[in-house]
Design a protein around this nucleic acid. Sequence first.
DNA 1: AAGCAGAGGTAAGGTCTC
DNA 2: CCAAGAGACCTTACCTCT
Length: 415
Amino acid sequence: MPPPLRRIAHLDMDAFFASVELLRYPQLKGLPVVIGGGRRKVDEALLTTRGDLGIRAPRFIPVADFPLLKEYVGRGVITTATYAARQFGVGSAMGMMKAARLCPQAIVLPVDFEEIRKYSRLFKNTITEIAPLMQDRGVDEVYIDFTEVPGGQREGGRVLARLIQKSILEKTGLTCSVGVAPNKLLAKMASEFNKPNGISVVHEDDLQSKIWPLNVRKINGIGPKAGEKLARLQIHTIGELAARDPAWLIDNFGKATGAWMHEVAWGRDDSPVATTSEPVSMSRETTFERDLHAVRDRAELGLLFTRLCEQLAADLQRKGYVAKTIGIKLRYDDFRSVTRDQTLEQFTADAATIRKTAGLCLKRVPLEQRLRLLGVRASTLVKAAEVLFYEQNKPITQSERAQSAIKSIANDQLF
DNA sequence: AAGCAGAGGTAAGGTCTC
DNA sequence: CCAAGAGACCTTACCTCT
């Protein structure tokens, strides 16, 4: 019997954040709704404005009331917008102020992370009961390995995709879109083909007809920058990318990226569906309500800085990790950003140690210009319980070997 | 003495994703 | 005049050691 064909699915929940809110507030169906950041402290004052809908939801303040508008939406951005809101040109990652101007009648709801996580767990559990090999890709997305699942090969995976869709709808009341293909790369593209509530099946042979006509930006990993550069080089479709000599791509985009671009343009991707993963870094960052100056707003900045470090320490401790490298990130009022890192002698999850190290990083950065964002990051993470094991088993670095040689020489002279 | 290659680490900046 | 937060990964530079 030949080995079964590799069948990988990508499943994407439809307008997840907005759909979860519509479960609670079905009377919002069809209305322009925007989910995203607002200033919590004024939420209460605005909650009654939608009494006509019988819900505790704020509404965009009339654009004319500029100060109130600014206080409420501040510097937040939109996470998700319903279809009705998108008609006004409002979309994900757009600043709230701009959205308010485009669609002042939109209803604003804050992201309810508790609720989002609850539905995220629910739909993922539903999937693993049917197909156990699943890879997380954020709150609303997963990859699923259909290859060895009973029925996973029928109609190229369509039958199993239908079963999963139906089960998720029954469990959560939410719809999703699924793409099934020979690998994750193509599955991800396929899941976009039939949104919302659709299924799309892609086979190896479909490369020319279904993939090559697409814009390179449809490739997961080619963002605005790479897309623009490719356009400058007269490459717009994936087919045009596939036609280029890999050596030429490497010359233009570097060894790793160039080779990768060639592979993905030919629909090749053998990365596995990874059911587990270890975090690489953890961070906390915040954009201030107004730009702050390191000297003039020193006290306020120091307080914020300390709080970020405390939150980061708490995150590490709660998740059971310790970090060896501490770093900061800051963004100036003109949106340029800089980072500084420092590696410690010992692993830590201690707020005071993080604060002190991050403070040293901050000293190495120009602070004449006003700041709009400050962040603290912990990397080189190890499970707290495995620090001893890590210390004993990590290969001795060359510099440490040299250090110990120096010490032994010193000892020789001493004794 | 000086120079080079290769490995591995650290740091800084940038891109991309949801 | 507007542009979040969190995390993964890549590139480049620079350093040390062999």
